[in-house]
Simulated scan of single mutants.
Amino acid sequence: MATTVRADQLQTPAHNPGASDETIWSPIDTLESVGIQRGDIKKFQEAGYHTADSILMTSARHLERIKGLSEAKVLKAQDSAGKVCRRLGFQSARAVREKRQSDVFHITTGSTELDNLLKGGIETGVVTEIVGEFRTGKTQLAMTLAVTSLMAQEQGGGNGAVLYLDSENAFSDERLAEIADRFGVDRDLADENVFVHNIYNEDNFEPAFKEAKRMIAEQQVSLVIVDSVMSVLRNEYQGRGELSARQQKLSQILYSIKRMAQEFNIAVVLTNQMCADPGCTFTNDAKKAVGGHVLAHLVNLRLYLRKGRGEQRIARIDKSCKHALGEATFELSAGGIMDVAQ
């Protein structure tokens, strides 16, 4: 068992503000030093923009919707953000690799074999989708990550808090405590640093993301979990007549999630459901991930889970531009995800 991680040991990691002179993102307050009025900065914050990077990453058309900000003010803010951020402009492949090596880290899944498949675990700065049928371990993997994210980076953790958006009423504080015991994480640390936000309908996503970005800007957060991204939308949009509207809403949600991962260099994990695939005639039990091409294109890595023998589960990388397609076997236990017992 790992050395117990206590609440007073959760330190500011290198990927958050204040840890070094050069951070991945710049607080929006830095715009005041390059000529943006304090009142305008407050309007951006009230609208959910807490970094100078977010101003640069959002189109002027969207920013102009903020009450009290004219086109001229928005363009000036974007120009000023470009002076304090290093988001735009060409970089050499070497610079990209060096930045990735210094900024990106991985969070262990609890299974060495699965970590090896993922080249170290769940990666920060990208969106990872975990898809599978019921009882394949999607939520159990998410709950395990909620605990391991609290551990120090030297132990395979993220050394930061966790934001858990729960649309399926699946979060369990009892499971959190059991998994924390397995990893030697103090229960008080888990209770005080895993924050749960219930999602009841599609309208809850936007304020939840707005609050999440505020929390990430103010404290050390290493992981955001959305469990699951499609359950609410499947209920609210039904039939082919509403499919286009559903996919547009899904695209908006995914864009917000992906930008959050890039802006703050945090890991974002989505769980997703399966549905029957009537268009496939090569198998009697064909299934596919819900969400169509919109979801498939916007996530960075898709991890497909299926059942094995007993409590064994098989994870397969179905989509990734960084990983070779492959499989790993792990086991579900009272302590979360673990390697298969020999």
Rank of each mutant, 00 (worst) to 15 (best):
A2M: 07
T3I: 08
T3F: 12
Q9W: 06
Q9N: 10
L10V: 03
P13C: 11
H15F: 15
P17I: 15
A19V: 08
S20A: 15
D21V: 13
I24K: 01
S26T: 15
S26D: 08
S26R: 14
L31T: 00
Q37I: 02
E46A: 14
H50P: 00
H50L: 02
M57H: 07
T58G: 02
T58K: 01
A60D: 13
A60M: 04
L63R: 00
E64T: 06
Q78F: 04
S80A: 15
S80G: 06
V84D: 02
R87L: 13
G89T: 04
V96Y: 06
Q101K: 14
Q101R: 11
S102G: 12
V104Y: 07
H106C: 13
G110N: 03
T124W: 10
T128C: 14
G132T: 06
R135K: 11
Q140G: 03
A142V: 13
M143F: 05
M143R: 01
S149C: 11
A152L: 07
Q153L: 08
E154Q: 13
Q155M: 12
L163W: 03
Y164T: 01
L165T: 00
L165Y: 01
N169K: 06
N169C: 09
E174G: 04
E174V: 14
R175E: 12
D181V: 05
D186A: 14
R187Q: 11
R187F: 07
D188T: 10
A190H: 05
D191V: 06
V194L: 05
I199R: 01
Y200V: 10
Y200M: 09
P207T: 08
F209C: 02
E211V: 03
A212V: 02
K213P: 00
R214F: 09
E218V: 12
Q219N: 13
S222V: 01
M230Y: 03
M230I: 14
L233G: 00
E236R: 08
S244G: 09
R246S: 09
K249R: 15
S251K: 08
S251A: 13
Q252H: 12
Q252F: 11
L254R: 03
E263I: 00
N265Y: 07
N265A: 14
N265C: 15
I266A: 03
L270W: 01
T271A: 10
T271Y: 09
N272Y: 03
A276R: 13
D277F: 10
N284F: 10
D285L: 08
A286E: 07
A286S: 14
K287G: 03
G291I: 00
A296V: 07
A296D: 05
K307L: 14
K307W: 11
K307F: 13
R309M: 09
R313V: 10
R316S: 15
C321M: 09
A324H: 12
A324S: 12
G326K: 12
E331N: 10
A334D: 15
G335M: 09
G336E: 01
M338D: 04
D339A: 10
V340W: 09
V340E: 09
